[in-house]
């Protein structure tokens, strides 16, 4: 072999060593301090962190969902709900990261998608195949169910006009109808109360007519 070939081989080995060292650095980074920062970032809804979590993990989730009869939109929905469940757990102080975040979020996403497949009961899907994954330590079934319910309610709440959303929100904050009328520049307390009722009825109607409501 010529000296030129040895130089090339040296650079190849150097390249792989760089990758190996980088991996070692990444593993060592996952210490308690880093985990605490991750939880803090999720709780603060740090957009840069959320963007990073999405770009680092979404392709794996997408692959899993698409390979299991889903679409990219399904994968996006699953990823979003997994982060929200993680946020809920962090908020309640029950978020325990015993492996890498990648493994954690993958297992939560897998759990959510399997649950959704079970609901769909599509003819060509043998849900039994996935039963082995149905129970995981990272997520409680109740957490999933509550999250699904609230997602449905919140999605339809966002469909209401901005005015309706605001009246309902203020009334739930125990602001008197008299003050809501003033804040919202509405003609009277009575009208505001009626308006709030109509808005809420619209919301309940949206929710009840959603096919997902029957599945809850």
């Amino acid at each position: 072999m010529s000296s030129h070939s040895y130089t090339i081989i040296f650079f190849i080995i150097f390249g792989f060593e760089c990758l190996y060292i980088k991996q070692l650095i990444e593993i060592s980074k996952l210490n308690t301090l880093q985990r605490k920062r991750l939880v803090k970032g999720i709780l603060k809804q740090d957009k840069i962190l959320l963007q990073k979590l999405y770009s680092e993990n979404f392709s794996t989730i997408k692959r899993f969902v698409i390979e299991n009869n889903g679409s990219e939109e399904d994968a996006q929905d699953v990823f979003q709900e997994a982060i929200i469940i993680t946020y809920r757990k962090a908020k309640s102080g029950t978020f325990q990261l015993t492996s890498s975040f990648k493994s954690y979020i993958y297992s939560v996403c897998r759990f959510i998608w399997i649950k959704q497949l079970s609901k769909k009961q599509e003819e060509n899907i043998n849900v039994g195949l996935y039963n082995e994954y149905e129970s995981i330590e990272d997520i409680e079934i109740d957490e999933y169910v509550v999250n699904e319910q609230y997602k449905l309610y919140q999605t339809h709440y966002k469909r209401l006009s901005h005015k309706c959303q605001e009246i309902i929100r203020l009334s739930l904050k125990k602001v008197s109808f008299k003050n809501i009328a003033k804040i919202m520049n509405m003609e009277s307390e009575k009208y505001t109360k009626q308006k709030k009722y109509r808005c809420k009825e619209q919301l309940v109607k949206y929710i009840k007519s959603d096919p997902k409501f029957a599945e809850l």
Binding site: Q45, L50, Y54, I83, Y87, R88, K91, L172, I207
Partner: peptide, 24 residues
């Protein structure tokens, strides 16, 4: 209706949903 009210009061979750949707 009580659960719907609770869900609506989750301002932080509503904001998180919006942020995630923007990122996606």
């Amino acid at each position: 209706r009580k659960e719907i009210n609770r869900a609506i009061l989750e301002n932080d979750i509503l904001n998180l949903r919006e942020s995630l949707q923007e990122i996606i």
